[in-house]
Simulated assay, not measured.
Amino acid sequence: MNPLYMSQKLYEHFEHIDEVKHYYGLLSIYALLQTAEEKQDPVLLEKCKHILSRFPDRIEHPRYNFPSYRIGGIPKAYALMKGYMPEASNQVREYAEEMMTAARDRKGIMSYPYDPEKELIWIDVAMAVTPYLLFAGLALDERRYIDEAANQTFLMYEEFLNPDNGLLHQSKNWAGPGKYSEDHWSRGNGWGYLPLAELVQYLPPNSVHRPKAEKYFKNLSAALLPYQSKRGLWRQEIPFEYSYEETSGTGLILYGIGIGLRSGLLDKEMYFPALQRGIEGLNKISINPDFSTERSCPGCLCPGEGENKGTVQSYVTLMLPHRDEHHSFAPLMFSMVEAYRNGIYDVPRND
Results as ranks from 00 to 15, higher is better:
24 Y>K: 09
49 K>N: 11
31 A>L: 05
27 L>K: 02
9 K>Q: 13
26 L>Y: 01
50 H>Y: 12
8 Q>S: 08
33 L>D: 05
20 V>W: 03
31 A>F: 04
39 K>Y: 04
54 R>V: 08
32 L>R: 02
7 S>K: 00
18 D>W: 13
29 I>W: 05
38 E>I: 02
50 H>D: 07
47 K>I: 02
14 F>Q: 15
7 S>V: 00
50 H>K: 08
21 K>G: 11
52 L>I: 06
32 L>T: 00
29 I>E: 09
34 Q>W: 05
16 H>K: 14
43 V>C: 08
51 I>P: 01
54 R>S: 15
30 Y>P: 13
19 E>V: 12
42 P>K: 02
50 H>Q: 12
47 K>M: 06
38 E>V: 09
41 D>S: 07
20 V>I: 08
34 Q>Y: 02
9 K>N: 09
14 F>G: 07
30 Y>K: 09
5 Y>G: 08
44 L>V: 00
34 Q>G: 15
28 S>L: 07
50 H>R: 09
53 S>T: 01
16 H>M: 10
31 A>E: 04
28 S>H: 05
36 A>E: 02
26 L>I: 02
49 K>H: 11
49 K>M: 10
15 E>S: 12
48 C>L: 05
32 L>A: 04
8 Q>G: 01
13 H>P: 03
22 H>D: 14
5 Y>N: 10
29 I>G: 06
15 E>K: 12
51 I>R: 11
27 L>H: 07
23 Y>K: 04
45 L>N: 01
43 V>G: 08
54 R>D: 14
20 V>Y: 08
31 A>R: 00
26 L>T: 00
18 D>H: 13
21 K>C: 14
8 Q>W: 01
14 F>E: 06
40 Q>T: 00
49 K>Y: 07
28 S>I: 01
51 I>W: 03
27 L>Q: 09
48 C>Q: 04
12 E>V: 00
45 L>R: 09
11 Y>T: 01
18 D>Q: 12
46 E>T: 08
43 V>D: 10
13 H>K: 14
49 K>A: 15
14 F>C: 10
13 H>S: 15
27 L>M: 07
40 Q>S: 14
23 Y>I: 03
41 D>W: 03
33 L>Y: 06
27 L>F: 06
38 E>Q: 11
30 Y>T: 00
30 Y>N: 14
23 Y>F: 12
14 F>N: 11
34 Q>C: 06
19 E>P: 01
5 Y>S: 15
39 K>I: 04
28 S>D: 10
53 S>Y: 05
41 D>C: 12
48 C>F: 05
7 S>C: 08
41 D>V: 01
48 C>S: 02
43 V>W: 06
31 A>S: 06
12 E>Q: 13
28 S>N: 11
14 F>H: 08
47 K>L: 10
6 M>V: 08
21 K>L: 14
20 V>E: 04
48 C>E: 04
39 K>G: 07
22 H>W: 12
5 Y>I: 11
30 Y>F: 15
5 Y>K: 15
